[in-house]
């Protein structure tokens, strides 16, 4: 079963390699050093920290 052996071998080699590469990339591009910047990413000038969004359920609407 060459196809299956190839898939297995490929998975076994590729996946950890991909994981290691992405870890290396993340470390090198500073994803783990400027960690406070990453935590603020969902927010921007238009929807900044401290402003709640999606407050649509209230007593004044039916």
């Amino acid at each position: 079963m060459p196809v299956i052996s190839l898939i297995l071998l490929g998975s076994v080699l590729l996946l950890p390699a991909a994981a290691l590469l992405s870890l290396r990339w993340a470390t090198r591009s500073g994803q783990f050093t400027l960690i406070n910047r990453a935590a603020l990413l969902p927010f921007d000038d238009e929807e900044p920290i401290g402003q709640a969004t999606d407050q649509i359920l209230g007593d004044n609407r039916r």
Binding site: E47, I49, G50, T53, D54
Partner: peptide, 25 residues
């Protein structure tokens, strides 16, 4: 994304979220 976004407050600990992702992986 939505919990911080809706209440307008960053996630409690970004370190924890990094730990969570890599340990899940």
């Amino acid at each position: 994304y939505f919990i911080p976004k809706v209440i307008g407050r960053p996630i409690h600990s970004y370190y924890l979220s990094v730990l969570g992702f890599w340990s899940l992986a």
